[in-house]
Design a protein around this nucleic acid. Structure first.
Lengths: 229, 229
DNA sequence: CCGTTTCCTTGACGTGGGTCAAGTCCCGTC
DNA sequence: GACGGGACTTGACCCACGTCAAGGAAACGG
């Protein structure tokens, strides 16, 4: 039981600075939650103000425009935190969080915020880091979307993914479905598909199945990423 | 002298929670800086990691794509803070900060960060608030840019500006030049101009001089803001 | 193994908006 | 008040991308 909650805390960067003793106490504030694939963990307007600490699985954080256009802001995996803003301010969520896989997480409620920050100032320090990283990442995404064409964005996105080696050539695996990549890059599945085809025609990449991309020519890919498009 | 530095601290939200005594001590860490209109306060890659606290004037914070496209992220006026990320992490700036007017500000250096946060935990708490507000604002901008047409974005932008009354009709004054509004909204001056013309043709607005916009028909403007465009 | 669903791809088409170029209008400066 | 330069507008052009529509390919559940 303590073990279960303990895991919520030990693997997560924002709690790394705490001693074992402190971690156990902090874990006392957490409540375990599970979500099955496809489940909506929170939605805009819901009266919850909680910090989610991902323990297993993955969440998709997205914004839905009145037109129905979905903009994916990020995905959160083990060790990531979600909902800082609602936790910090007590406001209601502005985004959707949907489980991409069966997920386990712990939640901290807004009403424990001041207690936690007062007793464990290091948590605040690390949350500041996390938030500023997130801010930088969203600003980069914004700059990419407004300044470059779709093909360039995809190329940059592929180059950012962790690569392993498959059949002697570097390869990446898309962490989310192509339609979600499209929503993340601010475009549509159709355009994304065409851009992939264009990169493949250039000999830069080769699509293997639905999720895997072989990188045949890194130079060509990097050039595609920097061209205005 | 103490007066001068004192002002750096008292009017700024992130220092509001401090007692007078504490404010004076904190001000001791600050160094006053001035910038004339057009001056670049910091640029990407410069070896400075400082927090700027705006005292007078305005800064434009923008990102320059390799293609030369400028994306304006925000403007900072009195009471705003700039450079949290460099201050928090010690990293170098990723954006440009250019003075739109003659400006005065105080700077805090990264090497004083841990001292400040340790001795005045409330500052950290308020910085968390500020950062999460900024994050939400950038996310809204991102959603707006990817989901709506330029005319809708402009309409929403106008509706967000503080309005006063001129000649009996509500009017707003653009806080930055039109070309900068264009860069902020992720478009070009030409397209912006055309969209203004379209809104004027609809009878929603009327342009008065270079900076003032009369709002003739709020309903029409609100409708334009919600149409997918 | 099959049916169903969801995802992905391809084609055709229209258009929003970016680009280039040529004025015109402000506005600060002398 | 005249000048100069940046800001703004307008026009013409065109291309990237979104939309609609249809077909195919995985994945999933039973």
């Amino acid at each position: 039981m303590v073990e279960e909650q303990d895991l919520c805390v030990t693997r997560v960067p924002i709690f790394q600075g705490l001693t074992r003793q402190e971690q156990i106490k902090v874990a006392g504030f957490a409540r375990p939650v599970v979500a099955v694939k496809g489940e909506t963990v929170f939605a805009p307007g819901q009266p919850v103000s909680r910090l989610l600490v991902m323990h297993a699985g993955r969440l998709k954080i997205s914004h839905l425009a009145p037109s129905g256009q979905e903009q994916i802001l990020r995905t959160a995996a083990e060790g990531d935190v979600v909902g800082e803003r609602t936790f910090l301010t007590g406001y209601r969520p502005e985004h959707y969080a949907v489980a991409l896989e069966d997920s386990r997480m712990c939640v901290f409620d807004h009403r424990d915020l001041s207690t936690l920050l007062r007793d464990y100032p290091d948590i605040g320090m690390r949350m500041l880091r996390t938030l500023s990283d997130r801010l930088a990442s969203v600003e980069r995404l914004l700059a990419a979307i407004t300044s470059a064409g779709v093909t360039a964005r995809i190329a940059a996105y592929l180059l950012d993914l962790p690569a392993d080696v498959r059949d002697g050539v570097p390869a990446v695996r898309l962490p989310i479905a192509k339609k979600d990549v499209a929503a993340y890059l601010g475009t549509t599945p159709e355009t994304l598909s065409r851009s992939f085809a264009a990169l493949a025609a250039d000999g830069a990449i080769e699509l293997r199945g639905r999720r895997d991309v072989l990188i045949l020519d890194i130079d060509a890919l990097e050039q595609a990423a920097t061209v205005t498009g």
